[in-house]
Design a protein around this nucleic acid. Structure first.
Lengths: 150, 150
DNA sequence: TAGCAATAGTTTAATATCTAATTATTAGAT
DNA sequence: ATCTAATAATTAGATATTAAACTATTGCTA
């Protein structure tokens, strides 16, 4: 974004690449999650439902890790999903610190219904790239993401 | 993320590429914005200061467009920057609908101080890729982002 | 010139998001 | 057996974020 920034080539390259990375990601996310508004679901709520759908019941800390969010945040998102009867909290008997999240029947029906649309939206968005290009992009993102000291 | 999703090759490829794209972006953003906590600045506040720093005074709608945010959001972020005396709102005389945002002296000093660190953080993060790879990534992101019907 | 459509900004109501502090529970160490 | 460190979840307090409704202003048009 800083059009009038004058740094070294290395600096302007890093800045410019970062801006393009962020813009592409936000654009794809916006386009592919637009359909969620029909179901009054947020991106985060969809993320939680999707995790439970594909990976099965799990505790909130695990959901937080998979979605790159804090446990405090997951508490809020799950509160809202629970209000709508889409997920259920079940305190673990083995270790009472844990709360296992389960999809309710309503939650399962909903994610079953919208997930195929979601996949089609992503496929459609990535038509902008050839299969080779998608693999290159995936590979570069993986390399970039993995080589950070967090 | 949906490890146990079984779709066509095209579908799994789009899903997998998207997940890697998001993770890389969020990781880089987290790593390169960590230093903002020292100044009690949020990523959004930094974005507004940076826009004003590099592009000069501009109205809030323009800031919203540059930062891919709603004008309602910019109102809130600017409220918080204004409370701290980092930016100033000046109503335009030509067209009284517009409010031009200016960096105050304090705002200018702050962004001048932290921006070099920010650039160095990005340069460091992108060391994970060679210069060629960065250019490939930028090019792929640009192509991907531009070919969406928003 | 009166009126309407468009635009900038704000407000409202809701959800998201974080850090830090807190509670409850567990596991390990002495 | 007790104490302590770690972990899961929540709460508190703050900021971010959006859509939709609203106010103020402007420009166009009939």
């Amino acid at each position: 974004m800083p059009i009038s920034f004058h740094g070294t080539k290395t600096e302007t390259e890093a800045l410019s690449t970062y801006v393009k990375l962020v813009r592409a990601t936000e654009t794809i996310t916006a386009v592919t999650h637009r359909h969620l508004a029909d179901e009054k679901l947020t991106v985060s709520q969809f993320g939680v439902l999707e995790s439970l759908y594909h990976l099965g019941p799990m505790c909130q800390a695990e959901v937080a890790r998979k979605n790159l969010k804090s446990t405090a945040n997951i508490t809020t998102v799950v509160d809202n999903l629970e209000k709508r009867g889409l997920v259920e909290r079940i305190r673990s008997d083995q270790d009472r610190r844990y709360i296992t999240l389960h999809l309710t029947d309503a939650g399962l029906n909903l994610i079953r219904e919208i997930f195929p649309d979601h996949v089609q939206g992503l496929v459609n968005a990535f038509r902008a790239l050839t299969s080779d290009e998608q693999q290159q992009l995936a590979s570069l993102c993986k390399k970039l993401g993995m080589n950070q000291q967090e």
